[in-house]
């Protein structure tokens, strides 16, 4: 799906550039593009390395696990179809926990394991289960307490208050998760009755 969008962006840009006589801009854009990519990665790099290190401490000390256990009562309500002792719930909790601290890339391994566990319980192997969809809605609307990447970028642009957007994005992310889950809930209800 990403590749369709990728092709669309390039083709639409070049074709539109030809028709508006803007092709010189596109030529220079292509030639200088890679450099902007490098600049962007250099801004993200230091904070991402730092937080990966800190999160490793949390994981090794069992703190991340403890946090998962805290979310357990809530998770069993969101995922009624997952059996209590199934490791899927534990991986879902770890994924949400890692996302919450803003380490999207650290959360990915947990998320993939959660999907594998849920797939084992799945009777129709080519069709998404209710639990999978609920998990991915929760994951994509991701309740993030600390959006590390964006804070890192704000710092690198010498923002006076790089962390001031934590509260605003927390409110927005809670709303999007809540309404996303609500829609999912009603769709499931309608299907069952």
């Amino acid at each position: 799906m990403v590749s369709i969008i990728w092709v669309f962006l390039i083709v639409a840009g070049i074709v539109y550039g030809f028709f508006t006589g803007n092709i010189e801009t596109i030529n220079s854009s292509i030639l200088t593009n890679a450099k902007s990519g490098l600049d962007l990665i250099m801004q993200i790099l230091p904070m991402l390395v730092l937080w990966s290190g800190l999160m490793q401490i949390a994981e090794d000390s069992g703190l991340l696990n403890k946090f998962s256990n805290l979310l357990y009562p809530l998770l069993s309500k969101l995922f009624p179809s997952l059996p209590k002792d199934n490791p899927a719930l534990g991986y879902v909790a770890s994924n949400i926990a890692a996302n919450a601290i803003g380490l999207g890339s650290a959360a990915t391994p947990f998320g993939l394991k959660a999907m594998q566990c849920m797939q084992e319980l799945n009777e129709k192997k080519d069709t998404a289960t209710d639990a999978m969809i609920t998990f991915l809605i929760l994951n994509t609307s991701g309740v993030t307490i600390i959006p590390t990447t964006i804070i890192a970028m704000r710092s690198s642009y010498e923002s006076l208050m790089p962390t001031e957007i934590i509260v605003t994005s927390l409110i927005a992310t809670v709303c999007s998760s809540f309404f996303g889950l609500l829609l999912d809930y009603f769709i499931r209800k309608r299907k069952h009755y």
Partner: peptide, 20 residues
């Protein structure tokens, strides 16, 4: 910043997780 921080990349996540 707020928009970037409040949500994840839906299409990418769906492609990655369902694909896996």
């Amino acid at each position: 910043s707020t928009i970037q921080g409040c949500t994840d990349t839906t299409i990418y996540v769906l492609a990655l997780y369902f694909g896996s």
